[in-house]
Design a protein around this nucleic acid. Sequence first.
DNA 1: TCTTAATTTAGACTTATTCTAATTTAAAGT
DNA 2: ACTTTAAATTAGAATAAGTCTAAATTAAGA
Lengths: 149, 149
Amino acid sequence: MDTKIRQKVESHLREAELKLTPQRFAILDFLVGSDVHPTAEQISEGVNRRFPRASRATIYNTLKALRDAGVVQEVYLGEGAARYEANLAPHHHFVCRACGKLEDVSSEAVGALPPCELGAGYAVETFEVVLRGVCAACAAKRERRKRRR
Amino acid sequence: MDTKIRQKVESHLREAELKLTPQRFAILDFLVGSDVHPTAEQISEGVNRRFPRASRATIYNTLKALRDAGVVQEVYLGEGAARYEANLAPHHHFVCRACGKLEDVSSEAVGALPPCELGAGYAVETFEVVLRGVCAACAAKRERRKRRR
DNA sequence: TCTTAATTTAGACTTATTCTAATTTAAAGT
DNA sequence: ACTTTAAATTAGAATAAGTCTAAATTAAGA
């Protein structure tokens, strides 16, 4: 494992006051090195290609612990399984209607939400935005198809 | 059933080119009359208190059909089960961190998203916002608790 | 090294949802 | 009203995602 990533992972675990177990290293390392927002199932497959193996319970326990520690984000899009990522920069998501790809969108790109009127007494602390549409690659494909006609 | 709601439900079903079955009436009627974003399970319980009964498969099939027809919205918050509502006005959601309550937030209250920079070629068509924080009722409760000390 | 609380494990269990194949029915046509 | 038929409904089996349990292991502090 890349030493730099290993150190990053280690500091995350320490920060979260979690024991530094090989399983946790493996899971968090896998997530740090992934940009596809894998499901628990995919994380399990990826991690278990090599030593150390992690049981299903450990995969779920670890993901939950890391989520609670604010080290990973859990994303629900209603496609069955939750998806995970280790992107710590505040961000939102874009889902392509055509290819289904899930991409991160930086918080800055979305900008601040206009102060919303929720009635007196409401305190909004965070917000998540899911943008839906067609990604550049799919849009280009469509354009080409159109031109061919 | 209230004649007005029945007509509303009927026009929705016709619009969606769905057969007008008693089960569909019952399900959609239940949703129109609910403001709690029930789960499929809760819809099943509510509908099956009285005639006509609807099987589990029908509940799910109907909700999916209505969702595809744009008549109901399916909301996923990662709490296990999907939740449903018949609010056709464009809107977003607020989840209270303290009591877990899910509330609608009108589109106007949230306002337009600032034109986001997703890179060339991206076409954003819709977006959903989930606001999280503390609702007025819970905020008041906390305030009272604080003062008592 | 010893201790202990935290962690991991296999596998059983639960919950949410989908599937299947047989039966029924809404609605269009006569 | 009566027939027809594609669509819808049904009970229950099947699947998928995640949680729980209780025993075994282990990280980390004394």
